[in-house]
Design a protein around this nucleic acid. Structure first.
Lengths: 255, 255
DNA sequence: TTTTAAAGTGTAAAAAACACACTAAGTAGA
DNA sequence: TCTACTTAGTGTGTTTTTTACACTTTAAAA
């Protein structure tokens, strides 16, 4: 295996063969939490018969001169065409025999890779509004699937997805990441829906609003929704400056 | 430090030159939170003059056939002689130019390594009682230092330490990891002290105990401390089974 | 017997959580 | 223009949790 390029190639174009990033791209549409998956079809090279057809997360090796966060952003961009998206590193997976299922090994062999070479992968998740994404980008066969309908994935991607989901939920409970899913001005019902859908719970509207009222960084505007076929909701903005100043260094423990 | 060699050796003895683990070993002694640091001394090979003398965290490359968690446990064992210690992966560091300070580059060069080759390092922290550790293990010059007195470290280890500390505190607030620091039977004052020292706060004794009383998995025994020169405290045990059964899937958010 | 050191305990007030049901405001379609 | 439909918005009483706060008890050591 090639030694790291202390050589003549420009480092930014050389893949690091030992380390990759995988992105768990969560999509939200006010109804369900979905995850972006890529079709993987393996056909027999001789007969052309489909050997299997399943789904993977999206990932890629990092470039030798590329930051991990940048690699994750690149992978996300390649699949969705989106930039400056919320991305969070959540865990690194590196079991020596991560790839053990026969389909996965056959797939790697068919792609000229050695299934016995362990690749460390750094897991990222991102969170975005489903309708920001134009599918079929660059002709890859990509689909949204509700997270609770994903029963199996290629490689160890199901485990990665599960850990990402747990990390996302933890994060959502403690930090204001839901605003990535909202337009600048939003309604409280929209905000509430984010928590309900992602955490998989239902919340009482009045109690939710009481809680919001205590948060000085959720600022009500003198402005209403327009063009909806029902009572228009008041619009709010999230004031990040207020938030940074006022977030209580929450000290409360559950042991 | 053993140089990794590629070649005919069995995989379990071959280092992966691209990936390492670093361990932030936190030590607790009921007074302070400390971190275990290793002396790094660089002497000029010709004159023998000390060029610098500073401190590092402890880490090592992983073996090709070794799990990340296992590598971290090995590093911890090599330094402390302890096994089965609480260890938590918290973040992976992989900036392409992680190593940029001249001292660090000189150090790597002197050890036959290329300072321009980026190494991805997976960060782990562990938490143990200071007095479980016999220093000078294997003759390395190792010392405890209170975390709030650490002002600089070699490489990017100060950043790694800071992130580990933040992760430890988050974890302590939400999960029962403090019991790693206690004997099986402990007093409530000891438990309280863990929170006070690690979180850097002070808590009211009565309110703390009211909170404990609500947790069914903290079980008071009919047994008292012995041999202390004051009123002996009642002893408690942590019932992990009760905990797993009763921990509320805490749903409460701070946005 | 006294001193010393930490253990252990109660109460009142404020804040937050929780459970719960009706009215208001706009658009769409008859 | 009236009616139906849909979502927005609001208040109260109860329970639980948080917070602030000071004195008595128990043991060993002097």
């Amino acid at each position: 295996m090639a030694k790291a390029s202390s050589g003549a190639l420009s480092a930014s174009k050389v893949y690091n063969n030992y380390v990759s990033v995988d992105c768990v791209i969560f999509g939200f549409d006010f109804t369900r939490l979905q995850v972006l998956l890529v079709d993987r079809v393996m056909t027999d090279p001789e007969s052309g018969v489909v050997r299997f057809n399943d789904l993977t997360l999206t990932g890629n090796h990092i470039y030798e001169d590329e930051d991990l966060d940048a690699a994750a952003a690149r992978v996300l961009f390649d699949l969705t065409g989106l930039q400056d998206i919320y991305l969070e590193q959540f865990r690194t997976f590196g079991a020596p025999h991560r790839i053990s299922k026969e389909n996965d090994r056959a797939w790697l062999r068919a792609n000229g890779r050695n299934p016995d070479q362990r690749i460390i992968t750094v897991g990222y998740y991102s969170l975005l509004a489903t309708d920001n994404v134009t599918l079929e980008w660059k002709g890859r066969n990509v689909q949204w699937m509700p997270v609770d309908e994903v029963k199996s994935l290629a490689f160890d991607h199901l485990e990665i997805l599960e850990e990402a989901l747990a990390a996302l939920r933890r994060k959502l409970l403690h930090e204001p990441i839901g605003f990535a899913l909202l337009p600048e001005k939003f309604t409280l019902s929209q905000l509430q829906r984010i928590y309900e859908v992602i955490l998989g719970v239902s919340l009482d509207k009045r109690n939710f609003r009481k809680k919001i009222a205590r948060m000085k960084y959720l600022v009500p505007l003198d402005e209403k929704q327009k063009g909806v076929a029902h009572k228009p909701a008041r619009l709010y903005v999230f004031d990040r400056e207020q938030y940074e100043a006022n977030k209580k260094d929450l000290l409360d423990f559950a042991i």
